[in-house]
Design a protein around this nucleic acid. Sequence first.
DNA 1: AGATAACTGGAGCAGTGCGTCCGTTTGTGC
DNA 2: GCACAAACGGACGCACTGCTCCAGTTATCT
Lengths: 212, 212
Amino acid sequence: MTTASTRKTRSDARHNCAHVLRVARALFATDGLDVTMREVARRAELGVATIYRHFPTREALITAVFADQVAACTATVAGAVADPDPWRGIITIVDEVCAQQALDRGFTSALLGSAATATVFAAERADNARALAELTGRARRQGVVRSDFTAADLGLVLSATRDVTAPTPDRALAEVRRLAALLLQGMRARPAIPPEPLPRRPPPGLAPGPAR
Amino acid sequence: MTTASTRKTRSDARHNCAHVLRVARALFATDGLDVTMREVARRAELGVATIYRHFPTREALITAVFADQVAACTATVAGAVADPDPWRGIITIVDEVCAQQALDRGFTSALLGSAATATVFAAERADNARALAELTGRARRQGVVRSDFTAADLGLVLSATRDVTAPTPDRALAEVRRLAALLLQGMRARPAIPPEPLPRRPPPGLAPGPAR
DNA sequence: AGATAACTGGAGCAGTGCGTCCGTTTGTGC
DNA sequence: GCACAAACGGACGCACTGCTCCAGTTATCT
């Protein structure tokens, strides 16, 4: 690690590394993050040990696979925050991130964290949270979103589109877009209808509850 | 099965069955559906075999645990459909179901289906879908929701609140309510702002995509 | 071409989950 | 009280997952 060996990394190793990355990306995108290492190996037509040589652990593989997508996402957020029109910035973020989520089943799990990946990309998540806070604050001050809108709401929106299940990617994208549109509509500043009183919970005894 | 045995089921067996059901309900509610059978047994202070005697399979246990909650949910939907005011019906459904989802981590997975439970409660789901379709149709015809609103949208709303993660049940409930409020706001009929054009996807090359 | 270090693949290890078997305990009817 | 079927509990089998070991292969440098 400190001193480079006399030999360079063999070309087939480099090729296989990239190949694994490609295959894993495709698998994670279609089947989600809980694909087994054996399955990745099988689809790459390689042995498991080969994968483990390039990516010492499952989590490392996930991190490597999603690194650039997460970076792109962070860039999108940064760009949106820089937008002089905060509302357009919000639209951009929601639109982009939701599209990413719909087209790649693994992406959301990797970024937001799931059972398979505890704390990967925590730093990026924190950065994004800060950026989102600034953006929502500005939007609220400019009065383009409802006055009680917070960064937490925007986070809520982004996690609401988490697992919209649909048979095909096209339909998933359509559904996520639809949901995002509804939510953006709900976020807009608008004095017309008050934020929904949500009155009366009619039949008591509806929720038996945890009984704990 | 055809002829009842001379003996009745032993009282301890009945007691244990109910006890397992109670414990499992509590565990599923707090920890989600992927709780181990061993864990259920441990918490119930019983052997695993005892659980398997009363509930031949894991899925059977889940079904038994959530049967009444699903029934209550279906009843809520039916009641809401019967409401002369379709908008209030929609609010009721969203409110009730979201509350249920927030307070019981297992409920949504059990009803909507997840990795752990493939097709349990499929019939109830179908019934609810029919009811929802009728309700949304009526709401649309009466003009209380945006003209392009469909039953699929309502389903989207209900699945959007799926896994809102929060440290405590209280906070989960608050977040889900908040999300539901935003969505209901977005669903309302309103000519003011058009349904969000969602223009320009600025930086190309944002989504590397599955590369498949 | 030949030496050699790096790379590879599949068997194997440890851990975990669901569901079962069987010897032991216990509630129940007489 | 006693007999006995029913219920119990924990060890066990089987399948699967992340990860490692080691003998065989192969690209690269001279």
